[in-house]
Design a protein around this nucleic acid. Structure first.
Length: 991
RNA sequence: GCCGAAGUGGCGGAAUGGCAGACGCGGCGGUCUCAAAAACCGUUGGGCUAAUCACCCGUGUGGGUUCGAAUCCCACCUUCGGCACCA
């Protein structure tokens, strides 16, 4: 009997040997093809790794080992995304330096990664909280600050080039949006330094703007969104969170929005991630539109839906809008003044975060503007739901297709005219009790309309195109004082004497007059106000979707996106507006009022100017201090450290350092480049090495990073590309997301409960405990085998022993085939069959690794092992096919089970190391089947199976099928309508 | 609310237009053993049945496309992930 498989001893032995030999050290660029396989940058927490994290690290390790055996130069590094809130909070709590905590946590992660046999090149380990790393985060910040985005060249350029252009031409050639105030060359030259700084802020890719933070009034600190409960109270203090506006740093990612969207076409990523990024960026073709006031002023609005312009029935100005005074008619002056004053008073009281939507308020100015597309006079209102800081501070209101405008129009009785067809074309018509003839229901049924009846009231469902036919059918059967309408699509008001299309403000008035008379009421502000009050119509009166325009003159009937383009062209031809792409994505807020982050290399001088820290002064390091407690002012703890904050500039001026630090997304936006040349003191990374190794070939991590991290990293990569620092513009060629591993399912009161692993639930399973009981190879195998790679799945404690049993079987079949035989009957298995299985398995395993099907890769290896047992019982041990099969099994198992593979390799007399061997090459001829099973179906049901030569053609299959007794009996007397033959698969006889 | 996914035996899953349930866990029966464990062999979706013959049903629910649907389309239900200061 061979020695028992003892993972604890042999795993430790080989891990020490591999480390001593630097087996996984990656050299510089060479002649070989490269493969860069990277895990998402982990944040080392005090809790260490769970088996859930290993779902990421094991598969990438399998891939790295596989590509090494394929002859690639493989880069497989690991480092630590170490700045951030959890460590800082822990530091405050335990009064320990966060750098010390980080090193402790990272060392533990590294120990665990070694424990599971991960083949990282630790000589390239990086930590983003170390000065030699964040030096280059700061370096990139300085370049962002010093560049602007030129839309004409579609790339970043030095800000000095913008200054030169401004001095010569002003903004005339830059193509500013209409909303941006232009500046002439003379005006620019007349600007003082502060005015220039303010102006350039609008262009810089890193700039200081204003943003609202969550303010905890008890702890007197800025807190993260996740530290605010759903009730708007701070987790720690329980205080009601307030909002506070601070000056903060942003990166102008919006400048790159178009390229970030466009270049998604060049990457191999899961489709859902691409879609999520596209939705996040949210490109839409909007327009700036000029409305003329009665006084002849231009009233500029921005709209994301130019296709709805014909439905703009009023305008709304923010209370602070500069034109409020001039458009207000004398009669309304007092009302407007008092509303504006009230709105301003209210704004001073910062509303709580996510306050429930309050009732709309507003006041009519008495003034009108002209809708540029149809010349309609539309009233101008003032309301506080329009914000001066957003867009132009004025909107065109399209109440039929914008929810806020809809609510506002209903409240103030303004007309609402639908101008976009519902995509589903659904419509309802309500026939009220006593308004129609008794014969009508039968007629409707006969005509094919479906309707429901309730207490004599009929609700008919139809579609827009049926509206006029429906009107013609119903009208003669309405009682003299009755009426009905088609609502949702088709839009008609049907009276006994006339049918009115609901297509304009005039029609709205006409319909209202009719209904007023019939209902004998005095006031009915709009047809829509009447419809909304009718429960049957509640869900169909309003929609905000894209669709085909109606009641919109020249764009009627055009598909949505074309309608937008046509409208923009219409406006531009007549000088009434300008197309402008609009993005949902907002600029990236980078400031954190925290200690534990990368310092921002900016100095604020006494005269109010921002000064860059010189490259030679980098890195600006964090001061070592005792206390990381936040200040009471909202500034970061750094602000209290006077000897760090105060700086004297070489020119004699004095200044204060920026005390905000960068959020950690900055660190993780370029780390994949630092791994390529991690110790370079002179530059971010050597350009030749970058050119060889980038982009990352395979990037693997959780789908929770689908949007932000990936978008930010892509943004920085494109920026560095524009600078000429990189020869590529997409950082991650292929991306895969592993599914979450949940805690083992448990049964409570008959209910199966599955939860996330978490410390608070005390249900974390660590790799340490699994390795201790079953070994790293069994853990690795089960991580692969547990489920499809991308699927979330609960851990099953019985799964690891199953994989362990497989490893035991591999151990015994390789080392002790001759000694052991099954007691069962003599098996029949040929050498040729074994050979075929060997080569089929090579193909399967290889394809599965390439396609991230690690679960079926393990299944293939298990089937191979089962086949070897059958072959042994058939007496094949010792044959050439047997020797080839065993060698192949060890090589194919090496990526997933590196320790046992290395041990067996050594014990079977092969040279160290199996991980430096070439991957076996499959022979397609040896793998080919000679005979295949073909299914015979009658009417799609399997009735028999035939074994035929693999190369049997369609005609042979058809003949065999028609001659088959079972097929004949199922056909019986019926005649054959069709015979479908799929070579190599089946014959289906249709009767 | 908005955006994005996923629903298949007792359990994890395989099959992505062509034999549903590969592989493993668990269960059942057996071999070995004084016995147990381990290991090995066999069996294991449901119904009907003397039967492991045959037949019928079966991939969240309802409809559709097709000679043929777990797979494609529509609607619904349920569950999960993200939503910009956790990373």
């Amino acid at each position: 009997m061979p020695e028992r498989y003892d993972p604890a001893t042999l795993e430790q032995k080989w891990q020490e040997r591999w480390a001593a030999d630097n087996l996984y050290r990656t050299g510089p660029a060479d002649h070989r093809p490269k493969y860069y396989v990277l895990d998402f940058y982990p944040y080392p927490s005090g809790e260490g790794l769970s088996v859930g994290h290993c779902r990421n690290y094991v598969p990438t390790d399998v891939v790295a080992r596989f590509y090494r055996m394929q002859g690639y130069n493989v880069l497989h590094p690991m480092g630590w995304d170490a700045f951030g809130l959890p460590t800082e909070n822990q530091a405050i709590k335990t009064k320990t330096n966060p750098a010390v905590l980080t090193r402790r946590y990272a060392a533990n992660y590294k120990r665990q990664m070694d424990l599971i046999g991960a083949s990282y090149d630790w000589s390239r380990e990086i930590t983003s909280s170390e000065p030699d790393y964040y030096h280059w985060t700061q370096w990139i910040f300085l370049r962002l600050y010093d560049h602007w985005y030129d839309p004409r060249l579609d790339q970043a350029r030095p800000i000095s080039e913008l200054e030169a252009e401004l001095a010569e031409h002003g903004t005339a050639r830059i193509g500013l949006p209409l909303t941006e105030r232009p500046v002439s060359a003379a005006a620019w030259l007349a600007f003082g330094p502060l005015a220039r700084q303010e102006f350039l802020k609008r262009f810089r890719l890193a700039y200081r703007g204003e943003a609202t933070v969550n303010w905890d009034p008890v702890d007197k600190t800025v807190i993260a969104n996740e530290e605010v409960g759903p009730d708007g109270k701070a987790w720690r203090s329980g205080a009601l969170v307030e909002r506070k506006v601070l000056k903060q740093w942003f990166f102008r990612i919006t400048a790159y929005a178009d390229r970030l969207d466009r270049d998604l076409a060049t990457v191999d990523w899961p489709a859902r991630i691409v879609t999520m990024q596209r939705n996040w960026i949210g490109t839409s073709s909007g327009a700036e539109v000029i409305f003329k006031t009665e006084q002849g002023d231009d009233l500029l609005v921005f709209t994301t839906r130019p296709d709805t312009l014909w439905g703009a029935t009023f305008m709304v100005l923010a209370p602070e809008h500069p034109l409020v005074a001039s458009v207000t008619a004398a009669a309304q002056r007092e009302a407007v003044a008092s509303y504006v004053a009230q709105a301003q008073a209210q704004r001073a009281l910062a509303p709580a975060a996510d306050a429930p939507e309050k009732e709309k308020t507003g006041v009519f100015t008495g003034g009108y503007a002209v809708n540029p597309v149809n010349g309609a006079q539309i009233p101008i209102w003032v309301a506080d739901y329009v914000l001066m800081g957003y867009g132009t501070g004025a909107i065109m209101a399209v109440p039929a297709h914008d929810e806020r405008d809809f609510a506002f129009a209903l409240k103030f009785g303004l007309p609402i005219i639908p101008v976009i067809e519902r995509p589903d074309q659904a419509a309802y018509s309500l026939l009220r009790v006593g308004t129609y003839a008794a014969t009508l229901p039968a007629l409707l049924r006969e005509a094919g309309y479906s309707f429901t009846e309730s207490e004599g009231q009929l609700t008919v469902s139809l579609t827009g195109p049926q509206a006029s036919a429906y009107a013609a059918l119903v009208q003669p059967h309405l009682s003299a004082d009755g009426w009905t309408e088609v609502v949702g699509s088709g839009w008609l008001a049907i009276f006994p004497d006339t049918t009115v299309a609901f297509d304009s403000v005039a029609a709205d008035q006409q319909i209202c007059d009719h209904i007023r008379t019939a209902l004998q009421v005095d006031a009915l502000p709009s047809f829509m106000a009447y419809l909304v009050a009718e429960p049957a119509y509640r869900d169909i009166v309003f929609h905000a979707e894209m669709g085909t325009p109606i009641h919109s003159g020249p764009i009627d009937g055009l598909p949505g996106t074309e309608a937008v383009a046509r409208t923009v062209a219409f406006l531009e031809e007549r000088g009434l507006g300008k197309g402008r792409k609009n993005y949902k994505v907002r600029d990236w807020l980078i400031s954190r009022q925290r200690y534990w982050g990368t310092p921002i290399p900016i100095i604020h001088t006494e005269d109010g100017l921002e000064t860059l820290v010189a490259d030679a002064e980098l890195p600006i390091t964090l001061p070592g201090v005792e206390s990381y407690e936040p200040t009471a002012t909202g500034e970061s703890p750094l602000a209290k450290i006077e000897d760090w904050v105060q700086v004297a500039l070489p020119d004699g001026r004095s200044g204060r350092r920026e005390t905000d630090t960068m959020g950690t997304f900055a660190c993780s936006s370029w780390y994949f480049m630092r791994f390529i040349d991690p110790r370079n003191p002179n530059m971010l990374a050597n350009p030749e090495e970058l050119a060889y190794w980038m982009p990352v070939d395979m990037y693997v991590g959780g789908a929770e990073h689908a949007v932000m991290h990936l978008l930010y990293a892509r943004f920085w990569t494109k920026f560095l590309y524009d600078l000429g620092a990189l020869p590529f513009f997409e950082p991650f060629q292929s991306l895969r997301n592993q599914g979450l591993i949940l805690a083992p399912a448990k049964e409570v009161d008959g209910q199966i409960i599955v939860e996330k692993m978490s410390k608070s639930k005390n249900n974390i399973i660590t790799p340490d405990e699994v390795v201790a009981s079953h070994g790293a190879d069994a853990l690795r195998g089960y991580e692969c085998f547990i489920s499809d790679f991308e699927t979330a799945v609960p851990w099953n404690v019985d799964g690891v022993p199953g994989v362990r049993r497989w490893l035991e079987r591999v151990w015994r079949i390789v080392l002790g085939a001759e000694q052991e035989r099954s007691q069962g009957a003599e098996a029949s298995y040929s050498e040729r069959q074994l050979q075929r299985l060997t080569h089929q398995t090579i193909i399967r395993v290889e394809n599965d690794i390439r396609n991230f099907k690690f679960n079926t890769m393990i299944a293939a290896l298990m089937e191979f092992t089962n086949g070897l047992y059958r072959a042994r019982d058939a007496g094949l041990a010792g044959t050439p096919a047997w020797a080839e099969a065993l060698k192949t099994l060890m090589l194919l198992a090496a990526p997933v089970a590196p320790h046992i593979a290395e041990e067996l390799w050594a014990r079977t007399g092969h040279g160290y190391s199996i991980h430096q061997q070439a991957w076996p090459v499959a022979d397609a001829n040896l793998a080919a089947e000679e005979e295949i099973e073909v299914v015979l179906q009658v009417n799609g049901k399997v009735r028999d199976k035939l074994t035929v030569p693999a190369d049997a053609d369609e005609e042979q299959l058809r003949t065999l099928a028609m001659a088959n007794e079972r097929v004949k009996s199922f056909i019986g007397e019926r005649s054959i309508r069709k015979v479908i033959v799929v070579s190599g698969k089946l014959v289906n006889v249709v009767v």
